[in-house]
């Protein structure tokens, strides 16, 4: 069976946990920008971790269901309504054939996830259903959803018994927060002066207008100062230039204003990279809207690993409670 898209919303794409093993040909992982909200949505409706959900950006879509399913909406509140009646977030909700789910705008945060029992069943490409719009690959025809699209769903059986199960309030992230985003300094941070490194960490940045699934440009912070050097052969003459190298997902490059590379990453290039957002905080950064505030806190790799483990444990606790 399927769901029918009546209105695509601002930019709604099919995403899962990502497409791995092809970064070396220039293929980014894509996948849910906020992996935590995506994973919890799947857990609520009883889907396996790898099932595809709809990632809604700023304003969600309007969809019509064609059979009985269990759905869950997680992430920032876009005021979801089922047949005109508000439905709760972070809670499994039963829907019937003919029901219509509509969303408004997010007032805090940017990306909301809609999971449907059975998962969105677009074809897998290189092991993933994620949409990568830049080259029109994966998802539904490689693009954001539009009115008139019909998406197949996987088999789910009767999961109506899950309706009403919900995630405890203490496990629901806050999307209005502006706590520091944790980063591990490194990569080519030898290019920055010591003063610049500390000023970078003290600065308050704004999310620029160019903030999408490819990258977040940050503005209104500080001017980057590079250590003077004779540019190495092959790098190019600008002090921000390095011999083209791989950009980790989450890495921060400094062409002038910093850019944080996100899930639809450009996989490499010739600008100095100076730090990497730790994996649990990539979820948080993905929820910062354009003109939102970002500041950074430098952590050690051990601290980053501990934060990652904390995120995994929280997900495990949520999953266990929903079994």
């Amino acid at each position: 069976m399927s769901i029918e898209i009546r209105d695509g919303g601002l930019s709604t794409t099919v995403q899962d946990t990502g497409r791995f093993g092809q970064y070396h040909i220039g293929m980014p992982p894509s996948g849910a920008m906020d992996g935590f909200a995506h994973d919890v949505a799947n857990a609520l409706v009883g889907n396996p971790e790898g099932a595809a959900t709809l990632e809604c950006t700023y304003q969600g879509p309007t969809v019509e269901f064609r059979d009985s399913r269990v759905i869950a909406v997680t992430g920032p509140d876009m005021s979801p309504e089922l047949n005109g009646e508000p439905i709760p977030l972070w809670e499994a909700v039963a829907v019937e054939a003919g029901d219509e789910l509509a969303f408004g705008f997010a007032t805090e945060g940017t990306r909301t996830y809609l999971a449907v029992s059975g998962g969105v069943d677009v074809p897998e490409i290189m092991g993933s259903r994620s949409t990568y719009t830049l080259i029109g690959l994966g998802g539904h025809e490689g693009r954001a959803l539009e009115a008139g699209d019909s998406l197949a769903l996987g088999e789910s059986g009767d999961r109506s018994g899950r309706a009403g199960s919900a995630v405890e309030g203490s496990h629901r992230p806050s999307y209005g927060e502006d706590d520091p985003i944790r980063i591990v300094m490194g990569l080519c941070d030898y290019r920055l002066t010591e003063e610049c490194k500390s000023a970078f960490l003290d600065a308050e940045w704004k999310v620029g207008a160019e903030a999408d699934r490819v990258g977040y440009r940050l503005t209104d912070g500080i001017d980057i100062e590079f250590v003077e050097r004779e540019q190495p052969f092959g790098a190019g003459p600008d002090p921000s230039n390095v011999v083209d190298l791989g950009y980790p997902v989450g890495s921060i490059q400094v062409p002038d204003e910093p850019i944080v590379v996100m899930r639809d990453a450009v996989t490499g290039g010739g600008y100095a990279t100076v730090a990497t957002v730790i994996s649990p905080d990539r979820d948080r950064l993905a929820q910062r809207p354009t003109h939102g505030t970002v500041s950074f806190e430098s952590v050690t790799v051990e601290e980053a690993l501990a934060a990652r483990e904390e995120r995994s444990e929280r997900l495990a606790t949520i999953r266990k409670a929903l079994e």
Binding site: V184, G186, C188, P232, F233, G234, V243, L245, P248
Partner: peptide, 20 residues
């Protein structure tokens, strides 16, 4: 040769600053 951590889940190895 520089061995650098890219957050918790990447390692970046810069063999040289210049191309050869």
């Amino acid at each position: 040769v520089r061995y650098e951590h890219g957050g918790d889940d990447h390692v970046f190895v810069e063999l040289a600053e210049e191309m050869s």
